[in-house]
Design a protein around this nucleic acid. Structure first.
Length: 272
DNA sequence: CTAGGTGCCTGATTGC
DNA sequence: TGCAATCAGGCACCTA
């Protein structure tokens, strides 16, 4: 599933591929993929708008358009965005097809139909509740510890909460907790300042490594970059989907448990 | 306010 | 073998 590193990789690719491109027409094959405005309005009014920049906020892909509107795309579980020539065969899971004036198309495909597209003049109304960007310079360890200490629940659900911190999903949350030596059920407000700092640095390092490898594509998952290539980070995962295999630090078998509703992987010896 | 539960979805896996 | 049931999971939405 696409999390911050996958969306970052995609945004970087799309910026290179799409800056300056203009929408010629839009085909909506699954109307519920369009969250805002209605599919009809998108089809009627998006053509003619130009893509001025592509960036990322949390797990949202942000396409800044002429006229200061923004096209926001959330891939959720199985969404994918690809730029391809108009002659490419149409993906059977295509949900929205953006035909570009230069003849190419930007395809949004999504087998599980959880992904959502927003077109709005006020991106803040969609992105406004997101927490800080973990890789931003102005997001500090001190800020992070303060946020953690305000919650008495377990660390894992808290790190998945996008209003606390933007961009982490199931994979990188488990990886960051392992790297920090913290148990997923550890209560957030019991962390020492030093432990908070460890988690802060672990999150940033795990995310940066994954971006370096252009994201994680697991065997049964379909994350791809804008040109259809898989990411290379799967082989660097240290706990995620490694239940029963030896911890790379101490050799103890990695355990899988369920926290909330999420499959959760951790080393019972290294994480406290 | 927060915490916890459910629905949205389909491909892959499991069970009979 | 074939079919049905189960599971996975991010987030919106609901209730306590």
């Amino acid at each position: 599933m696409p999390e911050l590193p996958e969306v970052e990789t995609l945004a970087t690719d799309l910026r290179r591929l799409l800056t300056g491109a203009e929408f010629k027409s839009v085909e909506v094959l699954w109307p519920r993929s369009v969250a805002m405005p209605t599919a009809e309005e998108l089809v009627r009014q998006l053509p003619g708008h130009q893509i001025q920049d592509v960036s990322r906020r949390g797990k949202f892909l942000v396409l800044s358009l002429s006229g200061s509107s923004a096209l926001l795309i959330h891939l959720r579980m199985s969404g994918r965005v690809r730029v391809e020539p108009a002659t490419a065969p149409v993906d059977s899971h295509a949900r929205v097809i953006f035909h570009l004036a230069d003849g190419r198309r930007m395809l949004f495909s999504d087998p599980r139909k959880f992904g959502r597209i927003y077109w709005t003049a006020d991106a803040h109304c969609v992105l406004g509740d997101l927490g800080p960007e973990p890789l931003d310079d102005d997001f500090t360890a001190c800020d992070f510890w303060t946020r953690l200490s305000a919650h008495k629940g377990a660390l894992k659900p808290l790190l998945l909460n996008q209003t606390v911190l933007a961009g982490l999903g199931n994979i990188y949350t488990d990886e960051a907790l392992f790297a920090a030596g913290l148990h997923p059920l550890r209560k957030a407000n019991t962390l020492s300042v030093a432990e908070g700092e460890r988690l802060y640095h672990a999150i940033r390092e795990v995310l940066q490594q994954a971006i370096w490898h252009r994201g994680t594509t697991l065997d049964d998952e379909r994350y791809q970059d804008a040109e259809g290539r898989p990411g290379g980070h799967a082989q660097h995962l240290r706990v995620y989907r490694r239940a029963g295999q030896p911890c790379l630090r101490c050799g103890t078998p990695i355990q899988r448990t369920v926290v909330g509703t999420r499959g959760t992987y951790f080393c019972p010896h290294c994480q406290h």
